[in-house]
Computed example of a mutant assay.
Amino acid sequence: MSNRSPYARSRQKSCISCAEGKRRCNRQTPQCSRCLAQGLECTYLSAWSPQKRQNISRQLELSNFAEVWPESSPVSDEALSFWPLNDSSSDDTSFTTSWLNSMPSLLTIPSFPPAELYPETTVLDKWSTNQLLRNIKRYPQMFVSSRKTPFIHSRLYDAFLPDTIQDAFTALAAYGTKTSETEDLIFRILESKTTRLVAQDHHTSTMPQLLAAVHALMLFQIIQLFDGDIRQRSLAEQHMDTLRIWTFQLQVRAGELTPALTWQDWILAESARRTIIFAMLIEGVYLTLKTGSCPNVKAMSILPFTSETTLWDLSTSASWLAESDQLRSETVLYGDFTKGWQEGKVSRRLDGFQKLLLIPCLGERYREVLELDS
């Protein structure tokens, strides 16, 4: 293993804007994703003379720049600063824009990040809140009955079935059979499984292990936040910071993925992309019910997903190989998708997943188009 410091590695590769801003650079040329999204000048040291490179490198070294993200702190207030990104001056769009495996396809390259189109907080109307809540509450039993949700692909756990998912499946199946006589027992089981889950440390876990932990906690949270008593909601609130931290770690891991060459690689990547969106969406709905406003729409606008959702419904590797060459499989930013749909650039019929994404941004005024199936 190399003994060079993180800075010594990064100073040869990161662009100047990312280095000076102390932000992660994906080193894409001719412009990195962060500079592209922020409309910044993107220049690499390798493009300058040796003397100028040496001077700039020295300046960056003196500013203690290191291309390493700080570890998340379990302290509640600090965790809130990681996720969602509530500070409008934050440049952390590099986490998500570096995750795009191609340029956004719905719009021309924007000169500003889509987050600028959205306010710091959004007041969701009653219809939108009810639509989102009604569907989110279905996900635990949907997973039990079909091993899938809008953020868990039905084939994700074919080859790898971690203990966290086994425990979640067992607890959720029991929850689906609860009666007034067994409710207390089943909630105690949920508490026990959740306590064991949040005690895990996933800093050294593989991405599939981390993704499974996030899935299990999200499914537990849905029950405890939206279908539990006061005690269950209190316990779930205590675990929100853990979900934020794990989701933050998942963003970092996903940013390191290479373009998918196999169906299983694509399933893992797209499940991660959708999971991060839905983790924010679930918390946003809960905060809307509790405080009257949702602070997550702005942060969600810079998250990517695959715009061609037909690929999500394919059931075999052969069909994915055949269709991925014909269909647009590139990712697009959530905010760009919303803006593209409003401008008529998304002409195909919306499926349930796409409607769920548009509801928080567009609301009841588009009720006729966005109404979800019962």
Rank of each mutant, 00 (worst) to 15 (best):
R11V: 15
E20G: 05
K22D: 09
R23P: 04
T29F: 08
C32F: 13
C35A: 05
C35K: 02
C42T: 11
T43C: 09
A47T: 05
A47E: 09
W48H: 15
K52D: 12
Q54C: 09
R58I: 10
L60E: 08
F65V: 00
W69H: 09
P70E: 06
S73P: 12
V75N: 14
D77K: 13
A79M: 15
S81W: 00
S81Y: 07
W83L: 15
L85W: 01
S88A: 04
S90A: 15
S90Y: 06
T93H: 11
L100F: 03
T108W: 04
E120C: 08
T122A: 13
L124I: 06
D125Q: 04
D125V: 03
S128G: 08
T129R: 08
L133I: 01
K137L: 12
Y139G: 04
M142K: 12
S146P: 01
H153T: 03
D163F: 03
L172C: 12
A173M: 10
A173N: 13
S180C: 07
T195G: 09
V198L: 03
T204C: 08
T206F: 07
P208T: 06
L217A: 08
I223W: 06
G228L: 05
D229L: 07
L235A: 11
L243D: 02
Q251C: 06
V252P: 03
R253N: 13
P259Y: 06
A260N: 12
A260E: 14
L261Y: 02
W263V: 01
W263L: 01
A269M: 11
S271F: 11
R274K: 15
T275W: 07
I276K: 07
A279F: 02
I282L: 11
G284L: 00
L287E: 10
T291V: 07
P295D: 03
A299R: 04
M300V: 11
E308S: 14
T310L: 07
L321A: 11
E323L: 03
S324Q: 14
D325M: 01
L327M: 07
S329T: 03
T331E: 15
G335W: 03
G335Y: 03
T338C: 14
G344M: 05
L350W: 00
G352Q: 15
Q354P: 10
L358W: 11
I359E: 03
R367P: 01
E368P: 04
V369H: 02
L370S: 13
E371Y: 08
L372K: 10
L372S: 12
D373A: 13
